[in-house]
């Protein structure tokens, strides 16, 4: 039985590198990433797990970093948009977002890309309905979604040809 009063050391892997950082139990993952590690790509918006702007992947699965406590990622691997951007293997997906004009204000984009990556990791050839179903938890207020669907379809298509 462990009791943590004020400080908890979170040792985890972020974007391929091991880090250790001290946080309080109530610290949200998004704050640890943004304020502690200066990984500002994840954004806080609705703060209620509805919008997806704070999406990061924990052991490959998307979560809402606004609500998941930082201590939850002890011993785990976290992927943020900075990790995706630095990974050449992800260029097919990020290029598809860019070429399909699936980015406008960009505030949702990091979460949107990570959610799309997670979808394609599990389902490399999603149908349009499967894309809408999986992505329904990520809100974009600018694009009207159509071009994001097209971007994900193109990324999937390119991966096949790839």
């Amino acid at each position: 039985m462990v009791q943590i009063n004020q400080k908890i050391t979170v040792a985890f892997n972020v974007n391929g590198g091991d880090v250790e950082i001290d946080v309080t139990p109530e610290t949200a993952l998004v704050d640890m990433l943004r304020d502690g590690l200066l990984l500002k790509g994840a954004k806080r918006s609705c703060d209620m797990q509805v919008c997806g702007a704070c999406t990061v992947l924990v052991d490959g699965l998307p979560v809402s970093a606004c609500t998941v406590p930082a201590f939850e990622v002890r011993g785990k691997s976290v992927t943020t948009i900075e990790g995706v951007a630095a990974d050449d293997r992800m260029a097919g997906l990020t290029d598809a977002f860019i070429d399909n004009a699936a980015i406008q204000c960009g505030f949702c984009t990091p979460g949107m890309v990570l959610a799309a990556k997670s979808l394609l990791d599990r389902n490399p050839h999603p149908s349009e309905d499967e894309i809408k179903d999986y992505m329904r938890g990520n809100i974009c207020r600018c694009t009207g979604y159509k071009k994001i669907v097209e971007a994900i379809q193109e990324a999937a298509q390119k991966a096949v040809q790839g």
Partner: peptide
Amino acid sequence: VANVRVRNV
């Protein structure tokens, strides 16, 4: 149920 992030947690 909810969305994929909520279901993962």
